[in-house]
Write a protein that binds this DNA or RNA. Structure first.
Length: 498
RNA sequence: GGUCGGAUGGCCGAGUGGCUAGGCUCAGCUCUGCAAAAGCUGCUACAGCGGUUCGAAUCCGCUUUCGACCUCCA
């Protein structure tokens, strides 16, 4: 029996997972900035860490999964100005931050539900934790690692680096960073270019601002995660996850802030998922190459050849290891759709077929192989959450299942015990751990079902009379309407609805 | 420019010192009134050049090339 190991970005190696408190696991994942609609790239971390969270629960841990909503900062929405430069617009014409934040938060939650992601245990908002953030900043100032200039507060990275390993997580070298020639906002206020903002003074016309010891302003980007993670998971917690693009400066800054406030690093295991690319380039708003989730699901985007079901997208993402880049293409999504349909069908067949009950396997070799494939599921997940390999094994098992149904494999080939193992393991991993659901709910017993049963009966009669014109017409017309009929080996007929 | 990470069969993608995943596509076969589905079979790849080794896609070096981060970013 193996134990859970996964790659820790901080130490750059796979490590055995040992929670801080036995039996409990704390997980923090950087959530969305709700100033715009989520796109395909955003789907990856939330699906990845949903599976992480599901697997931890499967292993018996009580999991507290915290994923924040970033709803504070310097916001703009397309077509509407965040800063009211004119200053004369009517109230309802101006961008109301709360309105925008509410809209995109709802949209985000909708997407998460379609992906069948479990809800986090706590989903704290940045605006709901302004006081916690201010308190942290005050502590950092008191300890001498931050300074105020003109109503803004900056973290003194150079001083921090004298005592602590700044740059360890992201592989940065401070001297290199000091030579950066980038022009950034507020650069002249900082003691060093590498310093980052803890609190930013808000210009009078800025839409979001709060009162603070340093005047009206808003919190820096990094401090919210430090404040909320420590509040809900403790000064030290188990796992912090997010996209690789957050390694620097976001997560590096989180470590620095928390280390000063609490006297030690905040996180034991850092996990980072890789990016989704399109034509080899990262999907991101700065590249102008995003496919929003609503576009993906509706197919309403120039490069999409068809709509893609959320479960197809989830499957496509889980077919690749989370630390590899994943390149988007219609071809790849379509391959995933076909593969998933086939796999799910085999899974449904498995739940329906019965086993003759023989305690000994007629085909010892196959029996052993099936047992092995099933047992490997856990082994693969324990090795850095290798969902790709889990799925590969499911496809090894699918022909066995289909073969039993189709008669190519004898029903007694595997033992009753192995059959039960197969049935149980498949369900656990496909539904509970990978979190997959059927593309369309079958509605047996519904009115449509009665109608289809009637048509199927008529077609059966026609076939008996060798009236193939009629039987084929029924089949073809139903296919046009999106109902696929399938003549089974035993003479029965089943259908699937597109 | 600095740091880091990739280059795998027609396509997507695991893997990692010997046993050469998996999916999709394609071809053939079985079953079938026909079709679909399903099953079976075939397609043997690891950017290039050196090196280490009995043995390398897997380790080391160099080259070519792509990308990520260094700025908001999942």
């Amino acid at each position: 029996m193996s134990e859970l190991h996964f790659y820790n970005s901080y130490t750059r190696q796979k490590e055995k997972f040992e929670p801080l408190t036995p039996g409990y696991a704390g997980l923090y994942v950087c959530g969305p900035t709700v100033s715009g609609e989520s796109h395909l790239g955003h789907a990856r971390p939330y699906i990845t860490f949903d599976v992480v969270q599901r697997y931890l629960k499967h292993l018996g841990y009580k999991v507290r999964y915290v994923r924040n909503i970033t709803d504070a900062g310097h916001f703009e929405e397309e077509g509407r100005e965040a800063i009211d430069k004119v200053g004369e617009k009517a109230k309802l014409e101006k961008l109301e931050p709360m309105e925008m934040v509410h809209k995109y938060t709802s949209l985000f939650h909708y997407g998460m539900r379609l992906f069948n992601n479990d809800e986090p245990s706590i989903e704290p908002t940045a605006t709901g934790h302004i006081i916690e953030q201010i308190t942290m900043i005050e502590t950092i100032i008191d300890k001498g690692y931050a300074y105020e200039v003109n109503g803004s507060v900056y973290f003194d990275v150079k001083k921090y680096a004298e005592k602590y390993p700044y740059g360890k997580l992201s592989g940065r070298i401070l001297d290199d960073l000091l030579e950066t020639t980038r022009e950034l906002d507020g650069q002249d206020e900082k003691r060093n270019k590498v310093d980052f903002a803890l609190w930013k003074k808000a210009p009078a016309e800025h839409i979001q601002h709060w009162n603070s010891p340093w005047g009206e302003g808003f919190p820096g980007w990094h401090i919210e995660c430090s404040a909320m993670s420590s509040k809900y998971l403790g000064e030290t917690f188990d796992i912090h996850g997010g996209g690789m693009d957050l390694l620097f400066p976001h997560h590096e800054s989180e470590i620095a802030q928390s280390t000063i406030v609490h006297g030690h690093p905040p996180v034991r295991y850092w996990m980072h998922n890789n990016m989704i690319t399109i034509n080899g380039k990262k999907m991101g708003k700065s590249y102008n190459n995003v496919i929003k989730l609503s576009e993906l699901f509706s197919g309403n985007h120039p490069i999409l050849e068809q709509p893609y079901h959320p479960m197809v997208v989830r499957f496509y993402i889980l077919q690749t290891h989370y630390r590899s880049t994943l390149d988007f293409s219609n071809e790849a999504l379509q391959a995933s759709e076909k593969a998933f349909r086939r796999l799910w069908e085999a899974y449904e067949i498995l739940q329906k077929i019965t086993h003759p009950g023989n305690a000994d396997a007629a085909n010892a070799e196959l029996d052993k192989q099936v047992t092995n494939w099933c047992n490997e599921f856990e082994e693969f997940m324990n090795d850095d959450f290798n969902t790709a390999k889990v799925i590969a094994n499911m496809f090894e098992l699918a022909p066995v299942i289909n073969g039993i149904k189709g008669g190519q494999v004898a029903a007694n080939a595997i033992s009753a015990g192995t059959f039960e193992l197969l049935k149980r393991t498949f369900k656990t991993y496909l539904e509970e751990i990978l979190g997959m659901q059927p593309l369309a709910a079958q509605q047996s017993g519904s009115k449509l079902d009665s109608v289809l049963s009637l048509l199927i009966e008529i077609r059966k009669d026609a076939k008996k009379r060798k009236d193939f014109a009629t039987s084929d017409q029924i089949r073809n017309k139903l296919a046009e309407a999106g109902v696929m009929l399938k003549d089974e080996k035993d003479g029965s007929v089943s259908y699937t609805i597109e």
